[in-house]
């Protein structure tokens, strides 16, 4: 199993694409720019919704009004960030996996995803009961706070990858 994973990582590391990204002066900065900008939109758009779930902003608006407005942007930006994140990672797959900040960032993103799935499947199912409440129920406030904490931590880890 581990041999197969190591073999795959070594293969990615040796692809012409990975070599080109490592040697090109502009390829990595360009892809990183798109990745960071997409993350900025993911975090900005999801934070607006998280703050509403916590009952801290725009209390006069319903939660679904804000989620309908923001989530298409969040998802689009997330898809772009993921594509370019994978491309950046593929330039040095073994080296990145050896960085603690990279590994923690991946775990945090998985936790953010789980938090969102749980929220969608459990808390959001009865949104009609609290949609217009200025302060949503504890489960929604908790989901918003966790989401914010995860995404801020993702940004922290992402930035620190560049410093190790």
């Amino acid at each position: 199993m581990f041999d197969a994973i190591n073999g795959l990582l070594a293969w990615i590391d040796n692809t012409t694409f990975a070599e080109n990204v490592r040697e090109s002066l502009w390829l990595f900065p360009t892809m990183e720019c798109i990745h960071v900008l997409s993350i900025v939109f993911v975090v900005g758009s999801i934070t607006r919704l998280d703050l509403r779930l916590m009952g801290l902003v725009e209390r006069h608006r319903s939660v679904t009004e804000l989620s309908d407005q923001m989530l298409p942007y969040t998802w689009t930006a997330f898809i772009v960030a993921t594509i370019f994140g994978v491309l950046l990672w593929s330039s040095k797959p073994i080296a990145y996996l050896g960085m603690a900040f990279f590994d923690v960032k991946m775990v945090l993103m998985a936790l953010a995803g789980l938090n969102m799935v749980f929220f969608q499947l459990v808390t959001f199912r009865n949104v009609s009961l609290w949609n217009s409440d200025s302060i949503p129920p504890f489960s929604a406030r908790f989901a918003g706070a966790m989401s914010m904490a995860f995404w801020v931590s993702v940004v922290i880890c992402g930035r620190f990858i560049g410093f190790v």
């Binding site: 960071v36 900025v40 939109f41 975090v43 900005g44 758009s45 934070t47 801020v152 940004v155 930035r159």
Partner: peptide
Amino acid sequence: HILAVSVLMI
């Protein structure tokens, strides 16, 4: 700085 850029861009 990046987190503040997120707020600004939105």
